[in-house]
Design a binder for these strands. Structure first.
Lengths: 199, 199, 199, 199
DNA sequence: CATGAATGAGGATTCATTCAT
DNA sequence: AATGAATGAATCCTCATTCAT
């Protein structure tokens, strides 16, 4: 009912994304993409100026959507700082199911964008990280997070935990995305060590 | 005194590593490597059966060395579980300085190994992770880590935090490798949240 | 008042001519032409059977017009032979301003016509030269030109002088078209050498 | 006895030159060149960085050789100005036999060099013309050429006459290169018109 | 040990042209 | 009269690899 028109452009983008994820950007030829769709290379170039332009498309869509979702979480006045950390972790982990390929391609293939294109994407990617950093900083000031916390490193830690899961997490495994996100949030917030006074 | 023999094989491997890191495996041609060394392609193929064989070399050296170092830490009876976590994190972060290129190439280019070669590397890489998982499990049993801790996820979190730093950490930045490792260890062990009874 | 109907066919021909001159026939794509006009390729092919057919159009118009103008000069009984030489040179040089693009495209791109088309154009081009040759021959017989003059070579010399100017002459330079034509006529008619008896 | 080694690089350059002349630079594919030689494209690119680099080679060789020969003529103190004009014309016409293809390709395909390469060739080409201009100027000052002569236009006329012959002159025609050159020199020096006092 | 020449398969991209609408 | 989607062949170029010397 909603995708009555298969829309060749979208079709190409989807098939390409899948191939880029599986084999990598450089290892996927335009011919591979066309073979998969049963069209000729002319068709590909009718819709995309170059293979790299298509990669840019994928990158832009990914980071822009991510920033929007993050914005909603951070702006939500009803959430505590703890809940914001949980929400962002959950958003990223859940994303693997919904847009895992996009995420993997985003982080792995960005270097194939030329300088000009990278100059448009990198600031957005950094913004995502800086937004987390800022949130942690505010949480420290508000007394929710330990005063010893380095907001910059905390942001990197959160991103490392979440983004690394792209390499191993399969949504149909034994743990659900919500469970994984919760467990990670607990580690980052409370640590894994038995608190000194509980020993 | 220590590099009396420049040893062409090692030379090729080193130069290749640097190029693979900077440009990527696929984007680096055998010609590029030879140009850098001022030798001809014949020389390259005298020492390595193929470009992929060279990549395998880099992978093997990296993971074998890493496993050895990890083994020393885990076998050290003098270390507490907390100290072991710190030591492993420090080992990985410090590695970025010493062998950063190798690590980045290891994680980024592994997919260019053929199935047979990957079948030799992947178990070693998994072993590294399982060793951490096992250490956490023992720590939980020994009462050093919270009983709620999921050892598998904890291992993934530790690796995510450490390996993600390959993407941003520069040893000559404002924080030293020791400081970064300590801060990460603190987060993972104690969490960033102010403990409930301290609020 | 005179271009009431922009006439797509003429529009296409004009834009194409400009592009062919600037970039060359092969280097100009049908897409380039359409982009310039803001129409689609379908439109182009509605008016012209092929890119080459359009090139033929340009060639025909050029040589036919040129032959007509030449005919008027040669048939003019009021002109001396000297004046006819001057007039033809002036016609060609002045043409660079009015139809320079056409001339350059004519001489430079003729080889892109297929054999059949070339068979229609080449005789016309030769006719233009033979008409000059014939005029010189008559001039010699009439005693206006030196008896030693080889009419064939004289025609080639005149054409060489005039057509080579397409490569360097800019009507807005320091010399006007009339001055250039006059100077060339003087050289060809009187030579540049100080006559032996004047020495 | 002198070309014992067929030298692939020279071979490629020669075959390419012939094809460029016959079909044009753009219309000649690297594949065409290789087919002609029975080698593969890899071989071509082993010897030339690009098709354009090969074109540059042809251009450089042509103009450098031409300038050298011109230099010898102009520096020859034994020659009168008249003889210098004859010699240069003869050199250019004779060249058509020896290096006609090179000349035609030089003038016709120069625009396919990129800006950087053109910036190396154009000054040399201009130098050739300016040398003639300077010679004419000196001839005027020395009283050998009419004082009314515009040296710049005279140089263009000489070049136009000579270079246009590339389009039609075949050394095996009814006139020899020497005869054609002499006839052209006579026209340019003495004119074709019967001198006023001879009428 | 090392070279230099050659291969051949594959890659991204361009483009004139067609055709249903 | 004009559009827009699609074709398919050709083009330049890259590159891992081989091999005689």
């Amino acid at each position: 009912m909603n995708d009555e028109k298969p829309d060749m452009r979208t079709l190409i983008a989807e098939v390409s994304l899948a191939l880029f994820e599986k084999r990598g950007f450089t290892e996927t030829s335009v011919q591979d993409i066309c073979d998969e769709l049963g069209v000729t290379k002319g068709t590909f170039y009718y819709y995309f100026a170059s293979k790299e332009a298509l990669l840019m498309d994928i990158h832009e869509q990914y980071i822009v959507t991510l920033l929007e979702e993050q914005g909603k979480i951070l702006a939500d006045a009803d959430l505590t700082y703890r809940e914001k950390v949980c929400a962002i972790l959950y958003m990223l982990i859940r994303d693997i199911e919904k847009r895992g390929a996009r995420g993997r391609v985003f982080f792995r293939e960005m270097r194939h964008l030329n300088d000009e294109r990278k100059a448009k994407i990198v600031p957005l990617r950094n913004q995502f990280r800086l937004n987390i950093e800022q949130m942690v900083r505010e949480g420290v000031e508000a007394g929710a997070f330990r005063s010893a916390t380095n907001p910059k490193l905390a942001a990197f830690a959160l991103l490392g935990i979440a983004n690394w899961s792209y390499q191993w997490f399969h949504p149909d495994g034994e743990l659900s995305d919500q469970e994984v996100a919760d467990a990670f949030a607990a580690m980052l917030l409370e640590g894994i060590e038995v608190a000194s006074r509980d020993r």
